[in-house]
Design a protein around this nucleic acid. Sequence first.
DNA 1: AGGAATTCGTGAACAGCGTTCAATAGCTTT
DNA 2: AAAGCTATTGAACGCTGTTCACGAATTCCT
Lengths: 202, 202
Amino acid sequence: MKNNREEKRADLRNRLIAAAERQIAEKGLAGLKARDITAEAGCALGALYNAVEDLDMLVLHVNSRTLTRLGKTLLSAAEPADTADDTMQALAAAYVGFACENRRLWIALFEHRLPEGREIPDWHKRDHAVLIEVIIPPLRQLRPDLDKTALTLRARTTFAAVHGVVQLALQGKFVGVPLDHLRDEVAALVLSMTRGAQVART
Amino acid sequence: MKNNREEKRADLRNRLIAAAERQIAEKGLAGLKARDITAEAGCALGALYNAVEDLDMLVLHVNSRTLTRLGKTLLSAAEPADTADDTMQALAAAYVGFACENRRLWIALFEHRLPEGREIPDWHKRDHAVLIEVIIPPLRQLRPDLDKTALTLRARTTFAAVHGVVQLALQGKFVGVPLDHLRDEVAALVLSMTRGAQVART
DNA sequence: AGGAATTCGTGAACAGCGTTCAATAGCTTT
DNA sequence: AAAGCTATTGAACGCTGTTCACGAATTCCT
């Protein structure tokens, strides 16, 4: 029975990730403490470092989970729409909705940073990709003149633009848009980007 | 001679802010340590807490300095241009330039967060205002239909959109635009926003 | 000018943090 | 059933920001 061993190991790992996720959702990334996590997961402090390399890596696992949920939300939001404009709007609206409903977890997604010199592991990078991939199909309709790499580049820019508005608003950074206007402003931004894309062709 | 007292006090304060600024520029916000700052400023550890409320507040002072420099950069970039489109492009380009040349200090501007429940003091909020104010004149030309509050709102959105692209690129967040395409992509975004604004009127 | 009063700088001490590690307990294999 | 290996434990470590009693310096008052 080697299964039992790996089973328990994976179980503890999941309990730790779940506890960390719950605590980030409750108190934010800055309020995440190793001792609280292990207490909630029902293990000793040191066990965390056997199940997972680091606290940072634990956060990355939580973030991957959040990204998976966000990806599903975006994919199902993109489906029913017909025109590229509508799809863009639906994606942006879904993004705003997810960020508002999962505020602290969403903030952790972009607030967290590895200590200088450490590289983000590939398995986590892959989970980010969906954010860009969902934008490419509608963007291709709007900009049939762009080739694949230019399209990817523009998709990143488009994502980042919407993301910036949401981020400054959600972290209450004073220069950010007030929360009750966030949806409308994002919609206006996306509209001007899609309209502008069709006119500009740059 | 009350002057001497306040003079020395202000001098130490400035040395502390300068040391913190230099160290953020060198090692980033995460590498900022109270002991290193006081060592560089030439005072004891405890003196920091007499000159300044907190490490957080020291960072805010550094950020205010950065914002003042950024504000000047933007103001002088906006001046010579004639059309609103050009002004917008000049502002965005100046913003990108400043962020790239003052990378760590610029990142600290948006990475730093006060512990939950603490409010950003007014003197620091005021220093943020310039980021929005420079956008309003050209935006008013593009959108003469909007009233003052709607204009402010749209200015925040416009800023946040550009900001988002720069931020994700500069912190190397993988979904971000590669640094060597940043200038072009921001220019393209601004173009589609200005063109889109003139067409959309929303 | 000189003593009193107030303020300031000092650095050891404290509490809290992430992380490590020798010892212990528990499972797996022979 | 015993040996061998791995996982778990929690005390201990080093580093953090912050505090505070003490001594030095400066200002104020007469």
